[in-house]
C-alpha cells in the first residue's frame, strides 16, 4: 500500500510542477499569442480595409460586451482621429460560414470597405468573393441604415458570376455586422471619446 502511495505521489508532484510551470509560460505569452493570431488571420484583411491609417488597428483594439459574448472592435486612426472601426460578422455561404470584416466610418456612418476573413467556398468560384476586388468595392459608401442585397434579390450588389450563394452569404454577414454596429454604437462612441492610440506612425 505504501508503495502505491509513493508512486502516486511521485506522478502527482511531477504533474503539479509541470502544470505550474506551464501556467506561468502561458500567462507570459498570452497577450503576444493573441496579437499574433489576429495579425496573421485578420491582419491582411484589416490592412486592406484601413488603407492609409496611421496606427496598427490590431494593437488599438478593444472589446465591447454584446449580450453574453464579447465583440472585438478594431480602431483605425485617420488624420490623428479615431475615425474608422472594424468588426467581424458571419453569414452562411455555400460551405459553412463566411467571415467578413466590415470597416465603418463612424463620422458618416458609411461603410469604408469590407474583406472576407474566413470561408470554405469552392476554390476558383465562390472563393472569388474574397479575391475579386470589383465585388468588394461595391460595398463602399453604403450607409449603415441600408440593407445590402444581391441584385437577384432586388438589391444593389452585383453577385460574383456563378457564385450567387456565396455572394448572398457575404451580404448576410455585412448586414449582421451593420446590425451589430447599430446596437453597439453608443458604447463604441463612448470608448472612442477617450481613445488614445498606443502606437502611432506618421
Amino acid at each position: 500500500m505504501r508503495d502505491i502511495l509513493k508512486l502516486f505521489l511521485a506522478v502527482t508532484i511531477f504533474s503539479a510542477i509541470s502544470g505550474g510551470l506551464l501556467a506561468f509560460v502561458r500567462s507570459a505569452t498570452q497577450a503576444r499569442i493573441e496579437y499574433q493570431q489576429l495579425k496573421f488571420v485578420k491582419g491582411p484583411t484589416l490592412k486592406e480595409i484601413m488603407k492609409g491609417c496611421q496606427n496598427d488597428p490590431i494593437v488599438d483594439r478593444f472589446k465591447v460586451k454584446c449580450g453574453k459574448k464579447e465583440k472585438t472592435i478594431f480602431v483605425g486612426v485617420f488624420n490623428g482621429k479615431p475615425k474608422v472601426i472594424a468588426l467581424e460578422a458571419f453569414g452562411k455561404g455555400f460551405h459553412g460560414d463566411i467571415g467578413v470584416m466590415v470597416g465603418i466610418d463612424v463620422t458618416t456612418d458609411k461603410i469604408l470597405g469590407i474583406g472576407v476573413t474566413t470561408h470554405g467556398e469552392t476554390p476558383g468560384v465562390g472563393s472569388r468573393v474574397k479575391t475579386d476586388p470589383s465585388f468588394r468595392t461595391q460595398f463602399k459608401g453604403v450607409s449603415v441604415n441600408e440593407s445590402v442585397k444581391v441584385k437577384a434579390d432586388g438589391g444593389q450588389i452585383d453577385a460574383v458570376t456563378g457564385a450567387t450563394i456565396s455572394s448572398r452569404g457575404v451580404c448576410k454577414a455585412v448586414n449582421n455586422a451593420l446590425a451589430l454596429y447599430k446596437k453597439l454604437k453608443p458604447e463604441i462612441l463612448k470608448r472612442l471619446k477617450n481613445f488614445k492610440s498606443k502606437k502611432l506612425s506618421s
Binding site: 506522478v11 511531477f14 504533474s15 509541470s18 510551470l21 506551464l22 509560460v25 502561458r26 505569452t29 503576444r32 499569442i33 499574433q36 493570431q37 495579425k39 496573421f40
Partner: peptide, 19 residues
C-alpha cells in the same frame, strides 16, 4: 510528463513569436 511540459512550452513560444 517532463517531455510534454517542454513540448507545450515550445508550442506557446512558437505561437507567440513565429506564428
Amino acid at each position: 510528463v517532463v517531455i510534454a511540459t517542454f513540448v507545450t512550452i515550445v508550442e506557446l513560444v512558437m505561437q507567440a513569436f513565429t506564428y
